[in-house]
Computed example of a mutant assay.
Amino acid sequence: MINYHMIGITDLPKASTFYDSVLAEIGASRSHNSERYQFYSQGENRPLFAICIPYNEDIATAGNGTMTALSAPSKEAVHAAYAKAIELGAVCEGAPGPRGQFGEFAYFRDPDGNKLCVSYLNR
């Protein structure tokens, strides 16, 4: 159902460096870009994740209650992505660990305040 999810950022080079490192931990890499945005992919026919300077050029803000959940290939990848995010200046919103019967989850806010979850679901 989801083609891509995009979040606003304030500094594209800085945010791209952050996401290059964090998303590599879950098997994602850059797919296509412009001077305003950068898309990331985990492979063909998978939903994309994107960061962008807002089209209206107003200040990017993180939505309160808004969160993007990114799929990881393993529990270990959840821990690695979280550790990389924290190392690069993210703020903890919930350390890696199991959440009920669902799987392994970790939560953090990127340097622009966007809340993300990296998760591995028990299926």
Score class of each variant (00 low, 15 high):
4 Y>M: 07
7 I>N: 01
7 I>E: 00
9 I>R: 03
9 I>Y: 07
10 T>A: 04
12 L>R: 03
12 L>P: 04
13 P>H: 10
14 K>T: 15
15 A>G: 02
18 F>Y: 06
21 S>M: 08
23 L>I: 11
23 L>G: 04
27 G>V: 12
31 S>N: 11
33 N>G: 03
34 S>W: 09
35 E>D: 11
35 E>M: 12
37 Y>G: 00
38 Q>G: 01
41 S>W: 05
47 P>W: 00
49 F>T: 08
50 A>E: 01
54 P>T: 08
54 P>W: 09
54 P>D: 03
54 P>F: 07
55 Y>A: 09
55 Y>T: 15
55 Y>M: 10
56 N>L: 09
57 E>N: 14
60 A>P: 15
61 T>W: 01
62 A>W: 11
66 T>P: 00
66 T>Y: 08
68 T>R: 02
69 A>N: 13
69 A>R: 07
71 S>L: 14
71 S>E: 15
71 S>D: 12
72 A>E: 07
72 A>V: 10
75 K>I: 08
76 E>V: 11
78 V>D: 03
80 A>H: 13
80 A>Q: 14
83 A>Y: 07
83 A>W: 09
84 K>L: 03
85 A>N: 06
89 G>A: 08
91 V>K: 08
93 E>N: 09
93 E>T: 05
96 P>Q: 08
98 P>T: 14
99 R>Y: 15
102 F>P: 00
103 G>N: 06
105 F>S: 03
105 F>K: 03
108 F>G: 03
108 F>W: 07
111 P>C: 05
111 P>Q: 05
111 P>H: 06
112 D>Y: 11
112 D>S: 08
113 G>D: 04
115 K>I: 02
115 K>C: 02
116 L>R: 07
117 C>N: 15
118 V>T: 05
118 V>A: 00
118 V>W: 03
121 L>V: 13
